[in-house]
Amino acid sequence: MKIRYRLREALIGLSFIWIWIVGFLVFTCYPLIRTLLFSFSQVKITADGVKTTFIGWENYRNALFLNVEFGDTLATYFVETLVIVPIIVVFALIVSLLLNVKIRGKGIFRTIYFLPVIITSGPVIKQLMDQGATTLPGIQTIIEMSKLHESMPELLADLIVFLLTSFITILWFSGVQMLIFLAGLQKLDSSMYEAASIDGASRWESFWKLTLPALNPMIIVNMVYTVIMQSVFSLNPVITQIQSAMYDAKYGMGYSAAMAWIYFLVMLVLLSVLVLVTRQRETNR
């Protein structure tokens, strides 16, 4: 009787989720396997369909060692994302702390800060960037005057210039993360803070010892979310390269598939580095 009941429940449950299972197999699993096969093949699109010839690691070798540009772009993506993701997360945390203060009109600020999430599409950002609307006036002059490149190693100077010129991008990509932190902050128990302050803890101490540990799960969620948002954003130079390789007659789809897989793996490495570092901090406590 009990087994029959269980079976019935499972079948009803399946009747709700079968569409996802079918969809996953057809639109995610099968394409994933197919691009994996493509990435080891020479792919030709002919009138009778797709023709593939197995060529082993050739596409990967070409992408990583022959195409200097792709390797460079990938390295830049890796470093920039590694730097910008913690900055976005910390910025979102600071803004959410400010918004968590009981003041009037914070709803207006929240609305303003979230607005970019709605209007951010690749072409809009590109137009604004080309126009110079995403850098505050004067920043370019500061960069030129400070002669960063003469006094610092190339990579570090590049990084600082990148941060100074793209900080509106940092702001514009932190809306969702800010809301996630805010939701977490609102769940915190105020009696915990009262107890801490009776024990003589300052606000500064209770932030580090109470608020931050409580927000740890949200920090991880935000790290993951930010990496993914940055990685799939259509202006990402790696994506543009994968895209153009796809239509390129010389390289073809196999090559582009190999690039996409390399990119996916780099992204996974990046994700695990950031998550592990955040976790590490948690266990050290």
């Binding site: 996953f24 099968y30 394409p31 994933l32 493509f38 897989w261």
Partner: peptide
């Protein structure tokens, strides 16, 4: 299955869009 649901969020569309 649910872990796979969440995993689909991580897979970049570039990797599945050619076969699709």
């Amino acid at each position: 299955l649910f872990a796979l649901v969440l995993a689909t969020f991580i897979i970049p569309p570039q990797i599945t869009m050619i076969p699709q």
